[in-house]
Amino acid sequence: MTVRILLADDHALFRSGLRAVLDTQPDLECVGEAEDGRAAVAETARLRPDLAVLDVRMPRLDGLAAAEAILAAPGNSTKVLVLTTYDSDEYVYRALRAGASGFLLKSLPPEEMISAMRVAVRGDALIDPSVTKRLITRFTRSIAPPSKPAEVQRLTSREFEVLLLIAAAHSNAEIAERLRVGEETVKTHVSRVLAKLGLRDRVHAAVYAYLHGLVPVSPARGMPSPPPP
């Protein structure tokens, strides 16, 4: 199955470079380009790609507003990956609130960018790791809920363990190895966690775990303390 991708960036050189890389991948196809946010929204509605890759800073409509419009459109099935050269908490927060499947810095090597596109289309949402750690630390310092939300009680002990491992930025393969189970079993657990907590994807599961105080954070590093093996 070929993944259909729309590229939106006001820099033609960046678009052409990324498109050239996509053209080398047998499972990825660039089906359209846009040089501003309004065009990105219109082209997404017209082409219905599997993934729209949006730069944050574009004329007429910025990438975050475009992401919000795309993801709020009735019947939308296009996932959104937001790219930026600016490491901003506000950008990350708006992308998450809109429902974007990923937020990455444009400084990533091309092979990692391509890998991120595949991850986003699969539904395993992601954020640049350094951005995630700082964002989560910022919120956990200001929010301290008194107890676990009621819906967390619906998770089994294994599902809760999987939630904590997601929050610690482990992939399905790493969770499978840690828990000594198969990847398909992990995928089942992840799906049940998302369904029971009413969450869109893994990124929102990680943010949920931190914001509700489910994951202890090390004061020295602002890093999660994953469950013991």
Rank of each mutant, 00 (worst) to 15 (best):
R178M: 05
A209G: 01
A176S: 12
T24V: 06
M117P: 04
L135A: 08
R138E: 10
G198T: 10
D50V: 04
L104M: 15
R178E: 09
R200N: 01
V162Q: 10
P228Q: 13
S157T: 10
D128Q: 09
S171W: 04
P74Q: 15
R221P: 03
A206Q: 14
R158T: 15
E90G: 04
K133M: 03
R118D: 01
H189V: 00
Q153A: 09
L51E: 10
L214E: 01
F160I: 04
A40R: 09
V162W: 02
L54K: 12
Q153D: 03
L163Q: 05
R46F: 04
M113F: 10
C30E: 02
S115L: 14
R202C: 11
A95K: 09
A220M: 11
A20M: 14
D36G: 05
D201F: 04
R122H: 12
Y91F: 09
V203S: 08
V186R: 08
I143Y: 15
Y208E: 06
H11Y: 13
T24W: 11
T85N: 09
L179F: 09
A73H: 02
V3L: 11
V41H: 11
S107T: 09
R38E: 10
A69E: 10
S88W: 02
V217N: 14
T24K: 14
D128F: 02
P219I: 08
R97C: 08
K106A: 00
R202Q: 13
T84E: 05
M58C: 00
A72V: 00
T24P: 09
N172A: 01
F160L: 03
V31G: 00
A73G: 02
L126S: 08
S77T: 13
L214I: 00
R38Q: 12
V162Y: 03
G102V: 00
N76G: 11
R15F: 02
S107C: 02
D23E: 10
V119G: 11
F139N: 01
G182A: 01
K148V: 07
C30D: 05
A120N: 06
G17D: 06
R158G: 08
F103M: 00
T140A: 14
K196M: 01
T188V: 01
R192H: 01
I5D: 09
I136V: 13
S147G: 01
D27K: 08
T156Q: 02
R19P: 07
D36P: 00
M1C: 04
Y210I: 09
P110H: 06
F139E: 08
T140C: 11
A167R: 04
G37H: 01
V119D: 11
